[in-house]
């Protein structure tokens, strides 16, 4: 048995998500991602079941494991008690640890997850910030959201949910520094920082340098679409 298969089988998410898949396809029938992407949780479960190291590596390098929306619609419907969404959690962490995530377009988006969710948690103790929900990135929220965004502080006071209060419970509060120190210590001790660092390193290896990673990040910040960044290989093919 291959090394990665062994490692996957050690993951508690894998142990809890994979019992014995009978390949009935109910998970795929109810999966929102299977509806819109070239994606099938049944296929993912099948590849894991085969315990074929090469097929697993190919899966970890592909877009497929990143299509799942983590809704867990597959989970209560499985007649054998499997959870494809849970298996996906294990596969994604394995893909990040080995840098395979950077081989796919959807996988490379982990840089945004790290720099938005991860950094928010480490800096503010909140996974999402009010300033993340910009009208530019969320145009579907409409013209009244634009108005709110321009008058954020006043609007939140008007609604009775003032923001950024210090040493106070409440919406979008400033979490005291001593609590933030505890949070950061937890992130370090439980390996979350290591996981985040693996994302930065994997991107650097794939794109060639730290400068290129910053270019990729800037492209996303400016255009909201990482596909506007051209990989070196793609650039050469264009020539």
């Amino acid at each position: 048995m291959g090394k990665l298969i062994e490692e996957l089988k050690q993951d508690i998410q894998y142990q809890h998500g994979m019992n014995a898949c009978l390949n009935c396809g109910i998970c795929t029938a109810v999966c929102p991602a299977a509806e819109v992407y070239d994606y099938s949780p049944r296929e993912v479960m099948n590849i894991c079941h085969q315990e074929d190291e090469e097929a697993l590596i190919e899966l970890l390098k592909s877009d497929k494991i990143w299509y799942c929306g983590q809704c867990f619609s597959c989970t209560p419907r499985c007649p054998r008690g499997n959870s494809a969404a849970r298996v996906i959690l294990a596969l994604r962490r394995l893909s990040i640890r080995y840098g395979y995530f950077a081989e796919s377009e959807k996988g490379r988006q982990q840089l945004f997850a790290k720099r938005v969710f991860g950094e928010n948690l480490l800096k503010r103790g909140l996974t999402l910030l009010a300033t993340n929900i910009t009208p530019q990135n969320f145009p579907e929220l409409g013209e009244f959201w634009e108005y709110y965004f321009e008058h954020m502080k006043e609007m939140r006071e008007w609604w009775g949910v003032p923001m950024d209060l210090e040493n106070s419970p409440g919406s979008h509060r400033i979490i005291p520094e001593k609590d933030m120190e505890e949070l950061r210590a937890i992130y370090k001790a439980t390996g979350a920082l290591e996981l985040m660092e693996a994302i930065e390193k994997g991107m650097e290896k794939k794109l060639g340098s730290k400068e290129e990673v910053e270019k990729y990040w800037q492209t996303w910040l400016e255009t909201g679409d990482s596909r506007n960044y051209q990989l070196k290989k793609e650039k050469e093919e264009d020539k």
């Binding site: 508690i12 959690l89 962490r93 982990q110 997850a113 969710f117 948690l121 103790g125 996974t127 001593k178």
Partner: peptide
């Protein structure tokens, strides 16, 4: 005041671990 986000968006967004 000192309770934090549970961090589960980071968990399902794959930047934290089960242990975290």
């Amino acid at each position: 005041p000192g309770h934090t986000s549970c961090g589960a968006i980071g968990y399902h967004g794959d930047v934290t671990k089960l242990e975290t």
